[in-house]
Computed example of a mutant assay.
Amino acid sequence: MPLGTLGSPPPAFFKQGPSAVSKLLLFSALSVLLMVADVRFGVTQPLRAVLSVALYPVQWLALRPQAMAEYGSSYFEARDTAQAAERELRQQLLVQAQRSGQVDQLTLENNQLRQLLALRERLTTTGVAAEVLYDAADPYTRKLIIDRGLTHGIKIGAPVMDAHGILGQVTRVLPLVSEVTLVIDREHSIPVLNTRTGARGVAYGEAGGAPLLELRFMATNADIEVGDMLSTSGVDGIYPAGVMVAKVTKVERRAETTFARILCEPVGRVQGARHVMVLEPLNTQMPARPQIDKPQPIANPKGGRR
């Protein structure tokens, strides 16, 4: 080794700076200081705003493949759903057109028979369209509030229906709104007719809380089956005859009981209706009931009465 190199400083490779622990503590303290300053004073908020604006195009480009894939899948799914719904609606339209032709023919024959037998014309019903505002606040009842009241000609007892069938009956009328008790309410009952057999009965709201009806007081050996459709009978003078009410879903026959337990599912959307039709009660068009005089006591020849 040359003697002249003994007094020169060592090369940079052998220089000793701060230790690794010191650097760790320094940068940890700096990080904590920056986090506290950011939380307290928001010192890095302008920097974040600038970085977010600068990186937005990069993020947008990075998300394009995912967005295009989601759009493509949703497009094809929506197209398939729309085509299936269109096919179903076309089938329903054909069925309704066939039924409409049959109804027109039956109506003509019915009118001719009524004229031949000198019977009065069938009662006609008019309706008022309404929108459901909200459900009643009482959790133990099945009621809803509609946006039509006394000022719109709504009357107590008016039937309420949707596009599928009977929903319930108006039980309270206020100037601008009305309260409708649904057919599934435990305090509600409606006379029904089995469209297959012609047997009449009374359907009550299920007391168990389920959105069902119970057809009560039907004998165990009654001719009723799962799938039978129930419509309004019209004998109560309120509901028009022939409007669908429910479909029989369960029939329990037990040897130890006199009556069968029959559960029915309402055809109306009792839990999701938005737009309804309030019909005029039939009793407003029917003649008043005759007054029945009380029988007079018969005079007794012996001077008394019997």
Score class of each variant (00 low, 15 high):
residue 84 A to V: 01
residue 274 R to Q: 13
residue 192 V to N: 05
residue 141 T to Y: 10
residue 192 V to W: 04
residue 131 E to I: 11
residue 57 P to I: 02
residue 17 G to C: 06
residue 148 R to E: 03
residue 264 C to L: 10
residue 29 A to F: 09
residue 86 E to K: 04
residue 25 L to E: 05
residue 96 Q to F: 00
residue 258 T to E: 03
residue 206 E to Q: 07
residue 288 A to P: 10
residue 94 L to G: 00
residue 270 V to M: 01
residue 250 K to H: 12
residue 276 V to D: 07
residue 219 A to P: 00
residue 190 I to L: 15
residue 224 I to G: 04
residue 188 H to Q: 15
residue 152 H to K: 08
residue 76 F to Q: 02
residue 38 D to K: 01
residue 41 F to C: 03
residue 239 Y to S: 04
residue 104 D to L: 06
residue 121 E to H: 15
residue 144 L to T: 08
residue 194 N to Q: 06
residue 132 V to R: 04
residue 62 A to G: 04
residue 64 R to N: 04
residue 186 R to P: 05
residue 241 A to W: 02
residue 293 D to T: 13
residue 13 F to C: 08
residue 35 M to W: 13
residue 251 V to R: 02
residue 235 V to Q: 06
residue 128 V to K: 10
residue 29 A to I: 06
residue 43 V to Q: 01
residue 65 P to F: 09
residue 114 R to Q: 12
residue 104 D to Y: 08
residue 156 I to H: 14
residue 26 L to D: 04
residue 27 F to G: 01
residue 216 R to H: 07
residue 90 R to S: 00
residue 88 E to R: 03
residue 68 M to V: 12
residue 62 A to S: 11
residue 272 G to M: 01
residue 266 P to C: 05
residue 255 A to Y: 01
residue 250 K to R: 14
residue 250 K to G: 03
residue 92 Q to L: 03
residue 3 L to I: 11
residue 279 L to G: 02
residue 274 R to F: 03
residue 186 R to N: 08
residue 158 A to T: 07
residue 55 L to A: 09
residue 255 A to C: 00
residue 222 A to S: 11
residue 173 V to W: 00
residue 72 G to H: 14
residue 217 F to D: 06
residue 261 R to P: 00
residue 22 S to N: 10
residue 52 S to C: 01
residue 242 G to L: 08
residue 293 D to V: 10
residue 80 D to G: 08
residue 229 M to F: 03
residue 304 G to K: 08
residue 170 V to N: 02
residue 180 V to W: 04
residue 121 E to F: 05
residue 130 A to F: 04
residue 157 G to N: 11
residue 209 G to M: 04
residue 21 V to W: 13
residue 3 L to H: 10
residue 7 G to W: 08
residue 211 P to G: 06
residue 301 P to H: 12
residue 48 R to Q: 06
residue 264 C to A: 15
residue 112 Q to A: 15
